[in-house]
Design a protein around this nucleic acid. Structure first.
Lengths: 200, 200, 200, 200
DNA sequence: GATGAATGAGCCTTCATTCAT
DNA sequence: AATGAATGAAGGCTCATTCAT
């Protein structure tokens, strides 16, 4: 929502460490480059490739993002935050809790499907992505959970559902969705969400 | 089920090259070793590890299985065949076409969930796995398609469903299902299958 | 002992460049930090570590001490000067020239043994340490030479001894003396000095 | 004495794993190259340099010598063994135990002085050289100890001497001895050995 | 003057694949 | 046929040194 929440110091931020005329530019270039390279080669892309694309040296990446997970988190922070904030908003504006849930999942899927390889790494059990996983889940699971609860309370869906599991399922369904016209992740997710309905 | 019949000597095996005293033994050792290593380290495990476990030299792997995809296909051929053959059988024995579909999917999921990393590589867009993908789909999509058609004909599920897509969805849902007690792929797949029901 | 008199403003300090309000303070902080880091990580410690410890930027080090050798020299100037000045003093106060020599060597050894890695770098043939070597030798060899001469003149030691060589031998014996309780450099040096005695 | 004791299987060695027509040649090339590079650049020389000089790929080094210490030990094994075996022999052939000790030390010094950088690494407290240190000391300290004991028993030297310490002292004195005509390690060692004599 | 961001060379190590034995 | 030694391309990471602010 508010752009670069982490880097922040946006408006006032007096005490925030200044001196980033170029550093700022580099950080942005790095994020853009990483986003682009991630789309092309996945989030495991060589550090060198990202640096080259950003037009900076490799060490610059390490300075800004000590670990790969830090970089990935930074790259996708915007969307994750936007998604997190969309939950409560939808709950108010949608026709019903179930509808809010459906639309929120749609937004999440839109996000994942357009980021090649992101869904895959989200499921990776590769240690070192722990902080990445933690960030995604910490931020989004509560939101999803609240949507589920509301829909369940309204009797629109079953009540035995687990938000973490659902999110992982949705995430999984998005893997490989770009790049292959024969597979439409949105349709599959729609089936999954339809499956949440109380069974006869 | 039937050894590794498909590996070669397909049906008649007329002019099949002879001389397999030890070659055969090696091939079997290789398959067993690969299966074991795949479970431990995933299907991207170092060639050397597999060779070491099989007690053969690395070059022997390359002789028998020129590409990694060949090896993976060979390793899982049994189960894929078993799964393919189970389709028609279930259609006859199950209470209804939908029930047959459900149980067939269950078997497929059982297979994938117990093979660490297999589901992931099945979705990988990594060129070089093309033959792997082709084999899985060629063999299983028709089976799944027939089950879907039967269930649709019986009015038990929607009729706008695509077997390839469904299989990929199910495969996706199995990614990362081992090794993480917080995620139960079978439950997610059950939701997906439930979503196939005609919507009110 | 006397600040860092040799660093500049040597004797009269006629046209010495002014403006040292903070520059001075930085130089001192740098020397202290370097001394501390040298003890911890040896004289080849990363420039960054020293800068960080001094609370200054790396470039400040380069401004004050263009080469690493310059920094090392500056760090140890005090002790070297003290050692140099102790020679003549000991020659007057000691019981005999040999005793003066022995005690002077003791002081030199005390110095080296307490500076982790200094003895090692003193022997390093690494170009770039030339000025370091030169400084140590220029300053101390004449002193040692005079002590040797006096002892030889008194017939207390052999007369075929070379001060430079002796100092390097003593310096070598001090390498690795810290940090290893199984090796006592002082004892080895004592043997060496004992070996200076006229042989029967 | 018998050349390549570790690689062995020299004469009979039936059960020894064969198949080393070229591997052997490479191992030798590697040892020669390493020895040469060590002389030039010290034992910390880049793996690549050694590989290049040997005319092999880097991985070949890792195959033969998994750690750097393994390589260094292998490179100097010959001389260490020869030195170890020379001890008892000298004790029998020399005019006196002290003379045997002196000549044995001479041999050790000859070895070290001709290997640029070896003496230095022998004193390095760098972890990872532990096995290297262990090898040298395990092999040579007992030999030196016996020579010291014999000389002490004969009343030719003081009896409070420690072999490990003496060897480190001698080793230290050899550091930087090549390459600098102003420093003669042999002369310094001779002083040290002279210092072993019972003091008046 | 001081700062610390950026640079990029350099090193280590792993692994798929080829090839002589 | 089988072997496993050799190869060399990658890729990760560090650190001395320069330079814009």
């Amino acid at each position: 929502m508010e752009g670069n929440s982490t880097v922040n110091d946006g408006g006032a931020g007096r005490a925030a460490p200044r001196k980033r005329a170029d550093a700022r530019r580099n950080e942005r270039a790095l994020l853009d480059a990483a986003a682009a390279v991630f789309v092309t080669s996945g989030v495991e892309a060589p550090v060198r490739d990202i640096a080259a694309r950003a037009g900076v040296g490799v060490a610059t990446i390490y300075r800004h993002f000590p670990t790969r997970a830090d970089l990935i988190v930074a790259v996708y922070r915007h969307q994750v935050e936007a998604c997190a904030e969309a939950g409560p908003a939808l709950l108010e504006s949608a026709a019903s809790p179930y509808d809010a849930l459906r639309r929120w999942i749609d937004q999440f899927v839109d996000f994942l499907v357009t980021k090649h390889g992101l869904a895959a790494v989200l499921q990776s059990d590769n240690a070192g992505f722990d902080t990445l996983h933690a960030y995604f889940l910490d931020r989004l699971v509560p939101v999803c959970s609240r949507l589920l609860d509301a829909a369940a309370a309204a009797g629109e869906i079953r009540s035995d559902l687990n938000a973490l599991e659902l999110m992982r399922g949705v995430g999984n369904l998005c893997i490989g969705a770009d790049n292959d016209p024969r597979y439409d992740a949105r349709r599959m997710v729609a089936l999954l969400i339809a499956g949440l309905r109380p069974q006869p």
